[in-house]
Design a protein around this nucleic acid. Sequence first.
DNA 1: CCAATAGTGTCTCTAAGACAGTATGTT
DNA 2: AACATACTGTCTTAGAGACACTATTGG
Lengths: 228, 228
Amino acid sequence: MKYSYPYPRPALAVDAVVFGFADEDVCGLFIERALEPFKGRWALPGGFVRPGETPEAAARRELGEEGGIQQEIYLEQLYTFGDPERHPGDWVVSVAYYALVRKDRFNVKPGSDAKDAQWFSLKKRPALAFDHGRIVDTALQRLRSKVHYQPIGFELLPEQFTYAELQQLYEAILGEALDKRNFRKKFDSLGILREVGVVPTGKRPATTYEFDRKKYQQMQRRGFHFEV
Amino acid sequence: MKYSYPYPRPALAVDAVVFGFADEDVCGLFIERALEPFKGRWALPGGFVRPGETPEAAARRELGEEGGIQQEIYLEQLYTFGDPERHPGDWVVSVAYYALVRKDRFNVKPGSDAKDAQWFSLKKRPALAFDHGRIVDTALQRLRSKVHYQPIGFELLPEQFTYAELQQLYEAILGEALDKRNFRKKFDSLGILREVGVVPTGKRPATTYEFDRKKYQQMQRRGFHFEV
DNA sequence: CCAATAGTGTCTCTAAGACAGTATGTT
DNA sequence: AACATACTGTCTTAGAGACACTATTGG
């Protein structure tokens, strides 16, 4: 190799915070480590980046291998954690990602490096291995701020949803109650939801909507920008 | 080392986009490479992360060594670039940062790995080595969006500044003309500027202001959030 | 007809944005 | 006196936020 750097190198890992939503609650997917260090502790799905691979590809691969998440999902780079003390006994730098998935679309299952894979409500998540707790906090912050100016909430909902569900999602992410009428007014005026049907709820049936991605992209090109 | 990962590892680098402001123009600090690869090409200041060092510390160290920037400066992690093809002949992953500095406070000077260090207007910057052009674009995007909701513009101005300068800065970053009266009204109403004096301009003297950091932090704690 | 959830309209107030002339200094 | 730059105020309009009742269905 020409120009190669001869000094010690870190191992490069990726870790992903996978967010889901169900029962009016935001949750995260964690795996139980089958290997040292932190064997038996809950941790983020992740692993090492292989030669020739981009970190994002590594993150997607690991989500498939470790969490049973193979489909196309929303995945975004979050932050790179490089404290030399973050991994006991080795120098491991981790590029962290966060993912938004529709929980119902996935059968989470542990892969070879994991004893178990489970969703946890983020309100009562277990203590995590390494600095993964901090990574989750960072991801939550990012989600909370991003949800205001990008229509990423829909990545967490089923294709079709009611206004009640959409509002519960926003309330769960933002951690505050919102006014039903103002919330509806807001999204109605954005014009990015398409009515697609009606669904029984036990009492009065509710109208269901879809996020109109194409229309949103058109509007975006015309200078529109989403804000909630 | 316990648990160490035996497979090939990337070299870990940091690169920094250093922004400055002068003459109604945003500029960036680039260095001319003294070594292969891309010897003689302009590039971002940066270098390899050493064992025991955090990436941020490495970035600060390199800015001192390569660009003559030793003082405390605003520095924020931007994005990690990990395309395996980004560096010819080796696997080098780079954690990119961006910095905001008061141009007048620094005597930029090239370090040992650089033939030269120079400020360039970002409108007419040279073609850069590696993927550094993309890194600059990413940093500019980040700066442009962040300037709306965080008072980081002040990091680019001298301690004391006039409304004309402040407005020129925002116009340069955002790339659009702003209305003088509305601009003033906005910042006046925020209440984060402190009048500190008067400066001759050749014609009618202008009032100078300082960013009142303490007041801003107080207000922030009370739930205030900056927005322009 | 009762219970439960879905859905709706108005008012107030703040702030964004468009817009043009006066004030104060220098030469 | 002329010129250049600093500085100022009003109107219109859009939207955020507070607020409470009606509609529709199942049991």
